[in-house]
């Protein structure tokens, strides 16, 4: 199917009638995902949003339930966001990240109803990346600029129009509902050509990385790797696959709510015991955990690398702690010593 670029606002408006439509909108120097009231609000086709798509399913702060304990009894109420939604214009890396997070929030023993309800009720409409940024390394982590994993529909930019690829039934239903017309063979060829032309220049060699991580927990290299890390949470909060959180009460006396907030393994308090003992005492242990989590533990548990190569951590790190360099150093390839 196909939709011309100038019809995108119309298309979105049509969807807005049925769904809550979330799309990138402009904020200062960057874009963020926001529900749009009108199709013209969306800025489709720019680079990645500042914050990844995970925040739409796993918001930074989320009320788990409200409670009141009174003489009459105990009342608990859990809000469940089951609105029908379309996430429009998501990049393949972000879509893939949700696929990865599904493993966490729907694990072998427990299901997270808040996340999963949103996942079930959201149609994912992605846009492939014709010109990946210099910090994108998706192809090095089993993804790519037109990766369809996690997507229901994929738009391929062919210049004046997007060729729409149907990935799932859910996607097809949305496309049908929106009344998209079929793409011509020429359009399909153009789409294939666009895909062909998109080159991810940045490559991180991950060969043997896992094998190395399997054995190098106590390797002295960790002493140097973390050295310039400030221990802030910028990389984790902007990471599409980081999912750590904290649970707190926001209450007056016995009436209030339980809230979960993003947390970060970079923070010292994250693992601090009540007794004062901390299994991850310093930045070294904490930074190591972040790398291990994504490139070893996640692989061990879910057989997937817990990174989608979006490059946000590279662009936003206050001290230019570049995960590509870190991984290269670990692999012991022609690594530069400066990280």
């Amino acid at each position: 199917m196909i939709v011309s670029k100038k019809d995108i606002p119309n298309l979105l408006d049509k969807m807005i009638a049925e769904y809550e439509v979330i799309a990138p909108v402009k904020k200062d120097n960057f874009t963020v995902f926001k529900p749009v009231a009108s199709g013209t609000d969306a800025v489709v086709g720019e680079g990645n949003t500042k914050l990844p798509a995970k925040e739409l399913f796993f918001p930074q702060s989320e009320k788990l339930f409200s409670y009141s304990v009174t003489e009459e009894g105990t009342k608990l109420e859990a809000p469940m966001d089951d609105k029908k939604k379309v996430l429009f214009g998501v990049r393949p890396c972000d879509a893939r990240s949700l696929k990865l997070l599904d493993n966490v929030f729907d694990n072998d023993k427990f299901q997270d109803p808040y996340y999963l309800t949103r996942r079930e009720n959201t149609v994912m409409v992605g846009i492939g990346c014709n010109s990946p940024a210099s910090t994108c390394f998706c192809t090095s982590v089993n993804s790519g600029p037109f990766d369809t994993s996690g997507l229901d529909l994929l738009l391929v930019d062919t210049g004046d129009a997007y060729v729409v690829e149907l990935i799932t039934e859910k996607g097809k239903a949305l496309a049908d509902q929106a009344g998209l017309t079929a793409a011509s063979d020429a359009d399909k060829t153009a789409a294939a050509a666009a895909k062909e032309a998109a080159v991810v220049t940045c490559q991180v060699n991950t060969d043997g990385l896992k094998a190395k991580l399997d054995v190098n927990f106590y390797d002295p290299i960790w002493e140097r790797i973390h050295e310039k890390c400030l221990g802030c949470g910028a990389c984790t909060y902007l990471c599409p696959t980081c999912h750590c959180f904290d649970i707190v009460d926001d209450a007056v006396d016995c009436t209030g709510c339980r809230v979960r907030n993003w947390d970060s393994c970079a923070f010292p308090l994250f693992t601090l015991h009540g007794s004062g003992h901390n299994p991850r005492t310093s930045n070294k242990e904490r930074y190591r955990n972040r790398i291990m989590h994504k490139f070893k533990y996640f692989v061990d548990n879910f057989n997937e690398i817990g990174c989608v190569g979006c490059g946000r951590c590279i662009k936003n790190c206050p001290v230019n702690m570049d995960i590509r360099v870190v991984l290269e150093n670990i692999r012991g390839s022609e690594a530069r010593l400066d990280s």
Partner: peptide, 10 residues
């Protein structure tokens, strides 16, 4: 603000 505390740590 996303409370990542980069300001503080920097």
């Amino acid at each position: 603000c996303i409370r990542c505390y980069a300001c503080r740590n920097a």
